[in-house]
Simulated assay, not measured.
Amino acid sequence: MSIFGTFLMLGVLQGAIMGVVLLAKSKSKPALFYLALAIFALTATLLRLSLFESTLDRTGALFAVPLASDLLILPLFWCFTLRVINQEITLSRRGLPWFLPWFVFFSYSLVFYLLALFEPTLNAKNTLALDWEYQNIRQFEDYITGPFNTVLGSIIVWKLFSHIHLIKDWVPDHLNERLKIYQIFLLMASLALIAVFSQFLSLYFLERTNAAPINKTAQLFYVAMVYVVGFLGYQFTALPRFKLDSDVAQEVDAFTNEEKTSLKSLFERGAYLDPNLNLNTVSRTLGLSANKTSSLIKAISNKNFRAYVNEHRVNAVKDKLQDAENAHYSILSLALECGFKSEASFYRAFKELTGSSPSEFKKLHQTQKVSFESR
């Protein structure tokens, strides 16, 4: 087996393992079910490429084995995307149409493969392939795969990008690093689009020998995608799931006095002290949707959820720093006590809200206190 074929088989092996792991985790995170199936589909495609590289797909029971899943991978990623952004998958409207091209070609390939199994010789199988226009059908499938995956891939990238833009201000500070995984995933998806489009162009405009380096580079990229996408996909399912619309009213008058009082009272009672506090938690406590809660916070404070929570936490830290009884406590311990989950998020929020570092604030307060007492 060539070095290239070895890389493909490594991709098949790691894809199978990653798919099984994700499938096992899908009971607690349903979105992972579709990600696991997408990884399996990508793995099947890598296996087909490996068999083609070793010419095994033209012998015995492996002759024309229907492993081509190029038209199945992105529809499954589309379903995964819908679940990640908290949208239901309605097969008749959102999901099913994208599976139809794969279903048509797979059905044809499966019937042909089953018929070819009963042919005793390779010549008989090749004759059957000519009668069934097998090569022409497969070539037509290759021709439509590029445009199809480019269109659907672009929709997936746009959908994820829109979702990031919508939720980035509502994710708690301690999950901010997880949010960056979205951006990495978007980069990988964009690179995948470039790989797909390059293959598409090479198929149409280049000679087969000239297109080979482009195709092999794209296929090696898919090997890397098996592991990276599986890992990243699992990581960002840990983000809270919000249903947020960008066009919800944010005027104070749009909310009742009871709703505004309930929110203020919740934070006055120290809800911000919970380091795992997120928009969903606040929404459930208030008996409102996440969408309405986000708009309520924006209406009464002109801040997003993260900024609103951090303002309360920073004010609590400032009060403690000015209390002489807390002089023997470290600044970080006070910050953690007030709901911050990491030193980095605390220092960033404190600097944004006060214009100075916590140590500078503490030193300034002590100087002012000494100056006042000496009068």
Rank of each mutant, 00 (worst) to 15 (best):
A299S: 09
T43H: 07
Q368A: 13
E133C: 07
V309S: 05
F340A: 08
I156L: 11
K362G: 02
Q368V: 11
L175N: 10
L42C: 14
Q368W: 07
A327F: 08
D253E: 15
F236R: 10
S330K: 12
Y347G: 00
R58E: 11
L46K: 08
P240E: 05
I331M: 08
W158I: 09
A307M: 03
L23Q: 02
I85F: 05
L203A: 05
S265A: 10
I181D: 13
D274I: 07
L201C: 12
T81V: 05
F185Y: 14
A290P: 10
G153F: 00
L166N: 08
P66Y: 02
S359L: 14
G95Q: 03
P147I: 07
L279C: 06
L8C: 05
N86G: 04
Y143R: 12
F305E: 02
A189F: 11
F221A: 13
R375E: 12
C338I: 11
I331W: 06
N149E: 09
S283Q: 09
K341I: 02
N215I: 13
E207D: 13
S301E: 15
F242R: 09
M18S: 03
F7L: 15
N280S: 09
A189Q: 15
I297N: 11
L332G: 09
H165M: 10
F140P: 01
